[in-house]
Design a protein around this nucleic acid. Structure first.
Lengths: 218, 218
DNA sequence: CAAACTTTACCGACCGGTAAGTAAACGTCC
DNA sequence: GGACGTTTACTTACCGGTCGGTAAAGTTTG
Protein backbone atom coordinates (compact mmCIF):
# COMPACT_ATOMS: atom_id res chain seq x y z
CA UNK A 1 0.00 0.00 0.00
CA UNK A 2 1.55 3.21 -1.15
CA UNK A 3 -0.65 5.39 0.99
CA UNK A 4 1.44 5.19 4.09
CA UNK A 5 -0.59 7.93 5.70
CA UNK A 6 -3.67 5.76 5.65
CA UNK A 7 -2.34 3.43 8.26
CA UNK A 8 -0.46 6.04 10.23
CA UNK A 9 -2.42 6.02 13.43
CA UNK A 10 -0.24 8.67 14.97
CA UNK A 11 -1.26 11.28 12.41
CA UNK A 12 -2.92 14.28 14.04
CA UNK A 13 -6.62 13.74 13.95
CA UNK A 14 -7.15 17.41 14.57
CA UNK A 15 -6.59 17.99 10.88
CA UNK A 16 -9.91 16.44 10.09
CA UNK A 17 -11.62 19.33 11.79
CA UNK A 18 -11.41 22.79 10.35
CA UNK A 19 -10.60 24.08 13.77
CA UNK A 20 -7.84 22.58 15.88
CA UNK A 21 -9.11 24.00 19.14
CA UNK A 22 -12.51 22.45 18.68
CA UNK A 23 -10.83 19.19 17.80
CA UNK A 24 -8.88 19.16 21.04
CA UNK A 25 -12.04 19.89 22.98
CA UNK A 26 -13.74 16.94 21.31
CA UNK A 27 -10.79 14.75 22.11
CA UNK A 28 -10.74 15.75 25.74
CA UNK A 29 -14.47 15.24 26.01
CA UNK A 30 -14.22 11.87 24.32
CA UNK A 31 -11.67 10.61 26.82
CA UNK A 32 -13.72 11.81 29.76
CA UNK A 33 -16.91 10.29 28.41
CA UNK A 34 -15.12 7.06 27.67
CA UNK A 35 -13.86 6.92 31.25
CA UNK A 36 -17.01 7.96 33.09
CA UNK A 37 -19.87 7.42 30.70
CA UNK A 38 -21.92 10.10 28.98
CA UNK A 39 -24.52 10.55 31.69
CA UNK A 40 -21.82 10.48 34.33
CA UNK A 41 -19.83 13.29 32.76
CA UNK A 42 -20.96 16.86 33.31
CA UNK A 43 -20.37 19.76 30.98
CA UNK A 44 -18.55 21.45 33.83
CA UNK A 45 -16.04 18.61 34.03
CA UNK A 46 -15.53 18.64 30.30
CA UNK A 47 -14.98 22.39 30.35
CA UNK A 48 -12.44 22.16 33.15
CA UNK A 49 -10.58 19.32 31.48
CA UNK A 50 -10.36 21.48 28.36
CA UNK A 51 -9.14 24.48 30.39
CA UNK A 52 -12.34 26.38 29.87
CA UNK A 53 -15.24 27.59 31.91
CA UNK A 54 -18.64 26.20 31.15
CA UNK A 55 -19.82 29.21 29.14
CA UNK A 56 -16.50 29.10 27.35
CA UNK A 57 -17.24 25.55 26.35
CA UNK A 58 -20.71 26.56 25.18
CA UNK A 59 -19.13 29.09 22.89
CA UNK A 60 -17.78 26.14 20.89
CA UNK A 61 -20.46 23.49 21.22
CA UNK A 62 -24.19 23.93 20.93
CA UNK A 63 -25.21 21.51 23.64
CA UNK A 64 -24.31 18.21 25.23
CA UNK A 65 -26.20 16.09 22.71
CA UNK A 66 -24.57 17.80 19.79
CA UNK A 67 -21.18 17.26 21.39
CA UNK A 68 -21.79 13.54 21.70
CA UNK A 69 -23.10 13.35 18.16
CA UNK A 70 -20.03 15.04 16.74
CA UNK A 71 -17.66 12.85 18.67
CA UNK A 72 -19.48 9.72 17.63
CA UNK A 73 -19.64 10.84 14.01
CA UNK A 74 -15.95 11.58 14.09
CA UNK A 75 -15.29 8.09 15.41
CA UNK A 76 -17.29 6.61 12.55
CA UNK A 77 -15.34 8.78 10.12
CA UNK A 78 -12.13 7.32 11.47
CA UNK A 79 -13.44 3.79 11.14
CA UNK A 80 -14.45 4.37 7.53
CA UNK A 81 -11.27 6.19 6.59
CA UNK A 82 -8.79 3.88 8.22
CA UNK A 83 -10.40 0.44 8.29
CA UNK A 84 -13.04 0.19 5.59
CA UNK A 85 -11.03 2.13 3.04
CA UNK A 86 -8.10 -0.16 3.53
CA UNK A 87 -10.05 -3.39 3.35
CA UNK A 88 -12.80 -2.85 0.82
CA UNK A 89 -10.63 -3.39 -2.22
CA UNK A 90 -9.39 -6.77 -1.04
CA UNK A 91 -11.04 -9.60 -2.95
CA UNK A 92 -9.74 -12.53 -0.95
CA UNK A 93 -12.33 -12.80 1.84
CA UNK A 94 -10.00 -14.21 4.49
CA UNK A 95 -7.43 -11.48 3.95
CA UNK A 96 -10.19 -8.90 3.90
CA UNK A 97 -11.61 -10.19 7.16
CA UNK A 98 -8.25 -10.18 8.83
CA UNK A 99 -7.57 -6.67 7.62
CA UNK A 100 -10.84 -5.44 9.07
CA UNK A 101 -10.40 -7.11 12.43
CA UNK A 102 -6.77 -6.15 12.74
CA UNK A 103 -7.33 -2.60 11.56
CA UNK A 104 -10.29 -2.02 13.82
CA UNK A 105 -8.50 -3.41 16.87
CA UNK A 106 -5.39 -1.40 16.07
CA UNK A 107 -7.36 1.79 15.67
CA UNK A 108 -9.20 1.21 18.92
CA UNK A 109 -6.01 0.49 20.83
CA UNK A 110 -4.23 3.54 19.47
CA UNK A 111 -7.11 5.96 19.97
CA UNK A 112 -8.07 5.75 23.60
CA UNK A 113 -11.10 7.92 24.03
CA UNK A 114 -12.42 8.91 20.69
CA UNK A 115 -13.35 5.69 19.01
CA UNK A 116 -14.25 3.68 22.02
CA UNK A 117 -17.24 5.85 22.68
CA UNK A 118 -19.27 4.72 19.75
CA UNK A 119 -19.39 1.36 21.49
CA UNK A 120 -22.08 2.53 23.82
CA UNK A 121 -23.75 5.84 24.35
CA UNK A 122 -26.27 5.68 21.55
CA UNK A 123 -28.73 6.77 24.19
CA UNK A 124 -28.15 10.40 24.95
CA UNK A 125 -28.60 11.18 21.28
CA UNK A 126 -31.89 12.48 20.03
CA UNK A 127 -33.84 10.20 17.65
CA UNK A 128 -32.58 11.71 14.38
CA UNK A 129 -28.97 11.71 15.45
CA UNK A 130 -29.33 8.18 16.73
CA UNK A 131 -30.83 7.07 13.43
CA UNK A 132 -27.85 8.46 11.55
CA UNK A 133 -25.33 6.75 13.79
CA UNK A 134 -27.25 3.49 13.84
CA UNK A 135 -27.34 3.46 10.05
CA UNK A 136 -23.61 4.02 9.82
CA UNK A 137 -22.91 1.35 12.39
CA UNK A 138 -25.09 -1.10 10.54
CA UNK A 139 -23.27 -0.38 7.30
CA UNK A 140 -19.97 -1.14 8.95
CA UNK A 141 -21.36 -4.23 10.58
CA UNK A 142 -22.65 -5.48 7.24
CA UNK A 143 -19.26 -4.90 5.73
CA UNK A 144 -17.76 -7.17 8.36
CA UNK A 145 -20.47 -9.77 8.03
CA UNK A 146 -20.17 -9.87 4.25
CA UNK A 147 -16.59 -11.02 4.57
CA UNK A 148 -17.79 -13.90 6.70
CA UNK A 149 -20.59 -14.72 4.26
CA UNK A 150 -18.07 -14.74 1.40
CA UNK A 151 -15.98 -17.22 3.33
CA UNK A 152 -19.02 -19.37 3.91
CA UNK A 153 -19.95 -19.31 0.22
CA UNK A 154 -16.43 -20.41 -0.64
CA UNK A 155 -16.85 -23.31 1.77
CA UNK A 156 -14.02 -22.10 3.93
CA UNK A 157 -15.90 -21.10 7.05
CA UNK A 158 -14.56 -23.72 9.36
CA UNK A 159 -17.44 -24.80 11.48
CA UNK A 160 -19.49 -24.37 8.33
CA UNK A 161 -22.66 -24.12 10.36
CA UNK A 162 -21.66 -20.91 12.11
CA UNK A 163 -24.30 -18.24 11.80
CA UNK A 164 -22.62 -15.27 10.07
CA UNK A 165 -24.56 -12.74 12.07
CA UNK A 166 -23.63 -14.17 15.43
CA UNK A 167 -20.09 -14.75 14.24
CA UNK A 168 -19.73 -11.12 13.25
CA UNK A 169 -20.98 -9.97 16.63
CA UNK A 170 -18.59 -12.28 18.41
CA UNK A 171 -15.61 -10.97 16.50
CA UNK A 172 -16.75 -7.43 17.22
CA UNK A 173 -16.95 -8.39 20.87
CA UNK A 174 -13.30 -9.34 21.01
CA UNK A 175 -12.37 -6.11 19.27
CA UNK A 176 -14.56 -3.77 21.27
CA UNK A 177 -13.69 -5.35 24.57
CA UNK A 178 -10.06 -4.32 24.19
CA UNK A 179 -11.16 -0.75 24.82
CA UNK A 180 -12.26 -1.81 28.30
CA UNK A 181 -9.29 -3.75 29.56
CA UNK A 182 -6.28 -2.47 27.66
CA UNK A 183 -3.95 -0.14 29.55
CA UNK A 184 -1.08 1.56 27.79
CA UNK A 185 1.30 0.77 30.64
CA UNK A 186 0.66 -2.97 30.32
CA UNK A 187 3.05 -5.66 29.18
CA UNK A 188 1.99 -5.73 25.54
CA UNK A 189 1.89 -2.88 23.06
CA UNK A 190 -1.23 -2.03 21.09
CA UNK A 191 0.02 -3.66 17.90
CA UNK A 192 0.84 -6.91 19.67
CA UNK A 193 -2.65 -7.01 21.15
CA UNK A 194 -4.22 -6.23 17.78
CA UNK A 195 -2.25 -9.11 16.29
CA UNK A 196 -3.51 -11.47 18.95
CA UNK A 197 -7.08 -10.41 18.36
CA UNK A 198 -6.76 -10.90 14.61
CA UNK A 199 -5.07 -14.27 15.00
CA UNK A 200 -7.73 -15.56 17.36
CA UNK A 201 -10.46 -14.23 15.10
CA UNK A 202 -9.08 -16.04 12.07
CA UNK A 203 -8.63 -19.29 13.97
CA UNK A 204 -12.17 -19.02 15.28
CA UNK A 205 -13.51 -18.81 11.76
CA UNK A 206 -11.20 -20.79 9.50
CA UNK A 207 -9.62 -24.23 9.58
CA UNK A 208 -6.22 -23.62 11.07
CA UNK A 209 -4.11 -24.47 8.03
CA UNK A 210 -6.14 -21.89 6.20
CA UNK A 211 -5.92 -19.45 9.07
CA UNK A 212 -2.15 -19.45 9.12
CA UNK A 213 -1.32 -19.47 5.45
CA UNK A 214 -3.78 -17.36 3.58
CA UNK A 215 -3.91 -14.43 5.88
CA UNK A 216 -0.33 -13.65 6.75
CA UNK A 217 0.49 -12.29 3.30
CA UNK A 218 -0.97 -8.84 3.75
CA UNK B 1 -29.36 -27.37 46.62
CA UNK B 2 -29.44 -30.51 44.51
CA UNK B 3 -27.05 -30.91 41.61
CA UNK B 4 -29.81 -30.42 39.06
CA UNK B 5 -30.84 -27.08 40.48
CA UNK B 6 -27.36 -25.75 39.96
CA UNK B 7 -27.66 -25.60 36.22
CA UNK B 8 -31.31 -24.70 36.06
CA UNK B 9 -31.19 -21.19 34.73
CA UNK B 10 -34.92 -20.80 34.92
CA UNK B 11 -34.99 -21.31 38.68
CA UNK B 12 -36.42 -18.28 40.49
CA UNK B 13 -33.51 -16.18 41.58
CA UNK B 14 -35.70 -14.50 44.12
CA UNK B 15 -35.20 -17.49 46.36
CA UNK B 16 -31.62 -16.53 46.90
CA UNK B 17 -32.78 -13.46 48.78
CA UNK B 18 -34.57 -13.81 52.05
CA UNK B 19 -37.14 -11.37 50.81
CA UNK B 20 -38.90 -11.79 47.51
CA UNK B 21 -40.00 -8.17 47.24
CA UNK B 22 -36.49 -6.86 47.62
CA UNK B 23 -35.36 -9.39 45.04
CA UNK B 24 -37.85 -8.10 42.50
CA UNK B 25 -36.73 -4.55 43.18
CA UNK B 26 -33.13 -5.57 42.55
CA UNK B 27 -34.12 -7.29 39.37
CA UNK B 28 -36.06 -4.29 38.10
CA UNK B 29 -33.23 -1.98 39.00
CA UNK B 30 -30.71 -4.26 37.31
CA UNK B 31 -32.61 -4.22 34.05
CA UNK B 32 -32.97 -0.44 34.10
CA UNK B 33 -29.32 0.10 34.93
CA UNK B 34 -28.30 -2.33 32.24
CA UNK B 35 -30.38 -0.44 29.70
CA UNK B 36 -29.50 3.12 30.67
CA UNK B 37 -26.30 2.93 32.67
CA UNK B 38 -25.90 3.53 36.39
CA UNK B 39 -25.37 7.27 36.25
CA UNK B 40 -28.16 7.59 33.70
CA UNK B 41 -30.72 5.87 35.89
CA UNK B 42 -32.32 7.85 38.71
CA UNK B 43 -33.68 6.43 41.93
CA UNK B 44 -37.02 7.90 40.92
CA UNK B 45 -37.08 5.84 37.73
CA UNK B 46 -36.12 2.72 39.60
CA UNK B 47 -38.83 3.38 42.16
CA UNK B 48 -41.49 3.93 39.52
CA UNK B 49 -40.49 0.82 37.61
CA UNK B 50 -40.88 -1.10 40.86
CA UNK B 51 -44.29 0.52 41.52
CA UNK B 52 -43.07 2.60 44.40
CA UNK B 53 -42.40 6.18 45.26
CA UNK B 54 -38.82 7.16 45.84
CA UNK B 55 -39.00 7.08 49.66
CA UNK B 56 -40.74 3.75 49.36
CA UNK B 57 -37.70 2.51 47.53
CA UNK B 58 -35.44 3.94 50.21
CA UNK B 59 -37.28 1.87 52.76
CA UNK B 60 -35.76 -1.19 51.11
CA UNK B 61 -32.35 0.04 50.04
CA UNK B 62 -29.92 2.19 51.94
CA UNK B 63 -28.72 4.29 49.04
CA UNK B 64 -27.88 4.14 45.38
CA UNK B 65 -24.36 2.87 45.88
CA UNK B 66 -25.49 0.08 48.15
CA UNK B 67 -28.10 -0.89 45.58
CA UNK B 68 -25.48 -1.20 42.87
CA UNK B 69 -23.17 -3.12 45.17
CA UNK B 70 -25.85 -5.64 46.07
CA UNK B 71 -26.85 -6.18 42.48
CA UNK B 72 -23.26 -6.61 41.40
CA UNK B 73 -22.53 -8.97 44.29
CA UNK B 74 -25.57 -10.98 43.41
CA UNK B 75 -24.37 -11.24 39.84
CA UNK B 76 -21.00 -12.51 41.05
CA UNK B 77 -22.79 -15.02 43.27
CA UNK B 78 -24.62 -16.33 40.24
CA UNK B 79 -21.40 -16.61 38.27
CA UNK B 80 -19.71 -18.55 41.06
CA UNK B 81 -22.68 -20.79 41.74
CA UNK B 82 -23.57 -21.63 38.19
CA UNK B 83 -20.36 -21.41 36.18
CA UNK B 84 -17.38 -21.87 38.46
CA UNK B 85 -19.01 -24.57 40.56
CA UNK B 86 -19.82 -26.55 37.47
CA UNK B 87 -16.39 -26.26 35.89
CA UNK B 88 -13.86 -26.33 38.71
CA UNK B 89 -13.92 -30.08 39.16
CA UNK B 90 -13.12 -30.77 35.51
CA UNK B 91 -9.51 -31.85 35.06
CA UNK B 92 -9.35 -31.86 31.27
CA UNK B 93 -8.44 -28.23 30.51
CA UNK B 94 -10.17 -28.02 27.12
CA UNK B 95 -13.43 -29.35 28.51
CA UNK B 96 -13.11 -27.08 31.50
CA UNK B 97 -12.53 -24.07 29.30
CA UNK B 98 -15.49 -24.89 27.13
CA UNK B 99 -17.67 -25.37 30.17
CA UNK B 100 -16.69 -21.99 31.53
CA UNK B 101 -17.24 -20.14 28.28
CA UNK B 102 -20.47 -21.91 27.46
CA UNK B 103 -21.84 -21.60 30.99
CA UNK B 104 -20.98 -17.92 31.28
CA UNK B 105 -22.50 -17.08 27.92
CA UNK B 106 -25.59 -19.10 28.69
CA UNK B 107 -26.05 -17.43 32.03
CA UNK B 108 -25.64 -13.99 30.52
CA UNK B 109 -28.10 -14.70 27.74
CA UNK B 110 -30.72 -16.07 30.09
CA UNK B 111 -30.41 -13.34 32.69
CA UNK B 112 -30.93 -10.07 30.89
CA UNK B 113 -30.31 -7.33 33.39
CA UNK B 114 -28.81 -8.78 36.48
CA UNK B 115 -25.57 -10.29 35.36
CA UNK B 116 -24.78 -7.96 32.56
CA UNK B 117 -24.25 -5.12 34.93
CA UNK B 118 -21.08 -6.36 36.44
CA UNK B 119 -19.56 -5.79 33.04
CA UNK B 120 -19.22 -2.12 33.66
CA UNK B 121 -20.34 0.13 36.44
CA UNK B 122 -17.47 -0.46 38.81
CA UNK B 123 -17.39 3.31 39.10
CA UNK B 124 -20.31 4.40 41.17
CA UNK B 125 -19.14 2.08 43.93
CA UNK B 126 -17.20 3.46 46.85
CA UNK B 127 -13.57 2.33 47.18
CA UNK B 128 -14.17 -0.55 49.60
CA UNK B 129 -17.07 -1.95 47.64
CA UNK B 130 -15.10 -1.60 44.46
CA UNK B 131 -12.16 -3.44 46.01
CA UNK B 132 -14.41 -6.36 46.94
CA UNK B 133 -15.93 -6.61 43.48
CA UNK B 134 -12.61 -6.18 41.75
CA UNK B 135 -11.14 -9.00 43.83
CA UNK B 136 -13.98 -11.31 42.97
CA UNK B 137 -13.76 -10.43 39.29
CA UNK B 138 -10.06 -11.07 39.30
CA UNK B 139 -10.55 -14.48 40.91
CA UNK B 140 -12.98 -15.43 38.19
CA UNK B 141 -10.73 -14.08 35.52
CA UNK B 142 -7.79 -16.10 36.91
CA UNK B 143 -9.96 -19.17 36.88
CA UNK B 144 -10.58 -18.66 33.19
CA UNK B 145 -6.97 -17.85 32.43
CA UNK B 146 -5.70 -20.90 34.32
CA UNK B 147 -7.60 -23.15 31.95
CA UNK B 148 -5.78 -21.49 29.07
CA UNK B 149 -2.43 -21.79 30.83
CA UNK B 150 -3.09 -25.49 31.44
CA UNK B 151 -3.73 -25.93 27.74
CA UNK B 152 -0.52 -24.13 26.93
CA UNK B 153 1.48 -26.31 29.35
CA UNK B 154 0.05 -29.39 27.69
CA UNK B 155 1.22 -28.02 24.34
CA UNK B 156 -2.31 -27.85 23.02
CA UNK B 157 -2.76 -24.11 22.77
CA UNK B 158 -2.94 -23.84 19.04
CA UNK B 159 -1.09 -20.71 18.15
CA UNK B 160 1.25 -21.72 20.95
CA UNK B 161 2.53 -18.20 21.23
CA UNK B 162 -0.79 -16.70 22.30
CA UNK B 163 -0.50 -14.67 25.46
CA UNK B 164 -2.84 -16.31 28.00
CA UNK B 165 -3.81 -13.00 29.54
CA UNK B 166 -4.83 -11.39 26.28
CA UNK B 167 -6.49 -14.61 25.16
CA UNK B 168 -8.60 -14.71 28.30
CA UNK B 169 -9.69 -11.12 27.78
CA UNK B 170 -10.60 -11.81 24.18
CA UNK B 171 -12.77 -14.77 25.09
CA UNK B 172 -14.42 -12.68 27.79
CA UNK B 173 -15.06 -10.04 25.16
CA UNK B 174 -17.04 -12.42 23.00
CA UNK B 175 -19.04 -13.53 26.01
CA UNK B 176 -19.72 -10.12 27.49
CA UNK B 177 -20.57 -8.55 24.19
CA UNK B 178 -23.57 -10.83 23.81
CA UNK B 179 -25.25 -8.83 26.56
CA UNK B 180 -25.15 -5.79 24.27
CA UNK B 181 -26.48 -7.13 21.03
CA UNK B 182 -28.63 -10.10 21.90
CA UNK B 183 -32.40 -9.56 21.75
CA UNK B 184 -34.78 -12.24 22.93
CA UNK B 185 -36.99 -11.75 19.89
CA UNK B 186 -34.13 -12.49 17.51
CA UNK B 187 -33.71 -15.47 15.21
CA UNK B 188 -31.57 -17.58 17.53
CA UNK B 189 -32.34 -18.69 21.04
CA UNK B 190 -29.97 -18.04 23.93
CA UNK B 191 -28.64 -21.60 24.00
CA UNK B 192 -27.86 -21.56 20.29
CA UNK B 193 -25.92 -18.32 20.70
CA UNK B 194 -24.06 -19.69 23.71
CA UNK B 195 -23.10 -22.72 21.64
CA UNK B 196 -21.77 -20.50 18.88
CA UNK B 197 -19.70 -18.48 21.34
CA UNK B 198 -18.24 -21.63 22.90
CA UNK B 199 -17.48 -23.17 19.52
CA UNK B 200 -15.72 -20.08 18.25
CA UNK B 201 -13.81 -19.78 21.50
CA UNK B 202 -12.52 -23.32 21.28
CA UNK B 203 -11.54 -22.94 17.64
CA UNK B 204 -9.73 -19.74 18.46
CA UNK B 205 -7.61 -21.48 21.02
CA UNK B 206 -7.14 -25.09 19.92
CA UNK B 207 -6.15 -26.82 16.72
CA UNK B 208 -9.41 -27.64 15.08
CA UNK B 209 -9.19 -31.43 15.32
CA UNK B 210 -8.70 -30.94 19.01
CA UNK B 211 -11.44 -28.34 19.19
CA UNK B 212 -14.05 -30.66 17.77
CA UNK B 213 -13.20 -33.92 19.47
CA UNK B 214 -12.04 -33.27 22.98
CA UNK B 215 -14.63 -30.78 24.01
CA UNK B 216 -17.92 -32.19 22.84
CA UNK B 217 -17.96 -34.89 25.51
CA UNK B 218 -19.18 -32.69 28.30
C1' DC C 1 -12.60 45.81 15.13
C1' DA C 2 -13.79 41.08 15.63
C1' DA C 3 -13.02 36.62 17.39
C1' DA C 4 -12.35 34.02 21.32
C1' DC C 5 -12.79 33.88 25.24
C1' DT C 6 -13.45 35.29 30.62
C1' DT C 7 -16.20 36.18 35.02
C1' DT C 8 -20.37 36.53 37.42
C1' DA C 9 -24.82 35.59 38.10
C1' DC C 10 -28.59 33.12 37.34
C1' DC C 11 -32.60 29.79 35.63
C1' DG C 12 -35.83 25.70 36.11
C1' DA C 13 -35.46 20.82 36.44
C1' DC C 14 -33.96 17.06 38.49
C1' DC C 15 -30.66 14.67 41.49
C1' DG C 16 -29.86 11.62 45.89
C1' DG C 17 -31.67 11.50 50.21
C1' DT C 18 -34.69 12.37 54.48
C1' DA C 19 -38.29 13.75 58.09
C1' DA C 20 -42.59 12.85 59.51
C1' DG C 21 -46.83 10.85 59.16
C1' DT C 22 -50.10 6.79 58.04
C1' DA C 23 -52.75 2.69 56.81
C1' DA C 24 -52.86 -2.04 57.32
C1' DA C 25 -51.41 -6.39 59.35
C1' DC C 26 -49.84 -8.84 63.43
C1' DG C 27 -49.03 -10.51 68.08
C1' DT C 28 -50.57 -10.55 72.62
C1' DC C 29 -52.73 -9.85 76.82
C1' DC C 30 -57.03 -9.75 79.27
C1' DG D 1 -62.96 -11.34 71.00
C1' DG D 2 -61.89 -6.70 71.50
C1' DA D 3 -58.31 -3.27 72.80
C1' DC D 4 -53.40 -2.05 72.40
C1' DG D 5 -48.95 -1.58 70.96
C1' DT D 6 -45.52 -2.88 67.40
C1' DT D 7 -43.85 -3.74 62.99
C1' DT D 8 -44.06 -3.42 58.01
C1' DA D 9 -44.55 -0.93 54.05
C1' DC D 10 -45.24 2.64 52.46
C1' DT D 11 -46.87 8.12 51.49
C1' DT D 12 -46.55 13.43 51.04
C1' DA D 13 -43.65 17.09 51.45
C1' DC D 14 -39.37 18.77 51.38
C1' DC D 15 -34.02 19.51 51.65
C1' DG D 16 -29.51 21.15 49.67
C1' DG D 17 -27.01 20.50 45.66
C1' DT D 18 -25.96 19.78 40.87
C1' DC D 19 -27.50 19.35 36.30
C1' DG D 20 -27.73 21.52 31.36
C1' DG D 21 -27.91 25.84 29.68
C1' DT D 22 -28.05 31.13 29.28
C1' DA D 23 -27.52 36.38 29.80
C1' DA D 24 -24.62 40.06 30.08
C1' DA D 25 -20.65 42.49 30.32
C1' DG D 26 -15.78 42.74 30.42
C1' DT D 27 -10.89 41.17 28.68
C1' DT D 28 -7.32 39.46 25.81
C1' DT D 29 -5.29 38.60 21.19
C1' DG D 30 -4.38 39.02 16.23
Amino acid sequence: MTAAAKTDLTAPVADLFDDARVASIYRTAAELIHAKGFAGTSMNEIAEAADLTKPGLYYHVKNKRELLFRITSFAMDLLDARVVAQAESIDEPAVRLRTIVHGHARLLLHEPGALAILIDEVDGLDPQQRAIITRRKRRYYDFLRDAIIDLQRAGRLRPATLDPTVTAFNLLGMIMWTARWYRVDGALGPDAVADTVATMAMHAVLGDDDAQQRTTIS
